[in-house]
Amino acid sequence: MAELSYRDAVARGIAQEMERDERVFLIGEDVAGAGGVFKATVGLLDQFGPGRVVDTPISEQAILGAAMGAAMTGLRPIAEIMFSDFFAVCWDIVVNEIAKARYMTDGQVDVPLVIRSANGGGARFGAQHSQSVENWAMAIPGLKVVAPSTPEDVIGLMAASVRDEDPVLFFEHKTLYSHKGEVPDGEIVDELGKAKVVRKGTDATIVALAMMVPRALEAAERLAEDGISAEVIDVRSLIPLDTATILGSVAKTSRLYTVEENPRVLGWGAEIASIVADEAFWDLDAPVRRITTPHIPLPSSAPLEDDTIPSVERIHREVKESMD
């Protein structure tokens, strides 16, 4: 067991898989020589050499097209899209090509690849470098979508993603890169499609993802001081979605809150709210409440950005008020 940062966990997770499987390689802008603009791939070039850790031009379509073609022909690429906002310039390759190749060819084509990307806000980068786009990805049949919140999960879910036969969009949260956590020694392999109950509770279920998980946990601490016992679930994987864990928790607490960094309209929590309304309506004692970033682009200035992305205070306030 050792303390590791989320950023170092990315490099360790990739290294674990590259050591295990020669078919795995890493490509992206500045991932090799510079060790990544977020320093999340430091040391990989030295360990695996320039044939397997490769700097690319600023050509997001070419990067993902190359990853797809390589995956179709027997390799297991990990490609980086530096900021998830940049998916907008290569979304064709993701949505029309990678996601649909297996289906359109009726199973002839496998596309086992991982696309890592720094997602989310809180870094004052403004509207084009701060978006939470996990809900874009979730809307596309054929993709799997993962967003870890802890260093241990980064490694375990990276391993599960690399070993998966389907294409996985792996969203790293850029504001979590500096967060630290205890990580066991040795190989770590997790499972896609498993949510994690990260705090037990009886009065309310709070479902969160990525950076919203530590905030939800802190809000739950404060709620406990108010006499409210909140259960916090880290969704971890949007596709496949572990609805059983969520429905099980709602059956116990009878109240559901989603905490979402993506803009409100058609955010991932809307799908969960819809499922709970369909399948657990009679378990509920109150309307489902979604705590989200509003339907606005993200502003840059600190007070403005802090006011838009759900904060510990806001999560605490909204849950408490609705339960009074």
Partner: peptide
């Protein structure tokens, strides 16, 4: 390895197959 209906995409994908052959 496929017929692609969005202009340009498959040139980048062909690169990947070529990359794989070389790798």
């Amino acid at each position: 390895l496929g017929s692609y209906a969005i202009i340009g995409a498959h040139l980048t994908i062909a690169n990947g197959a070529a990359w794989s052959a070389k790798y």
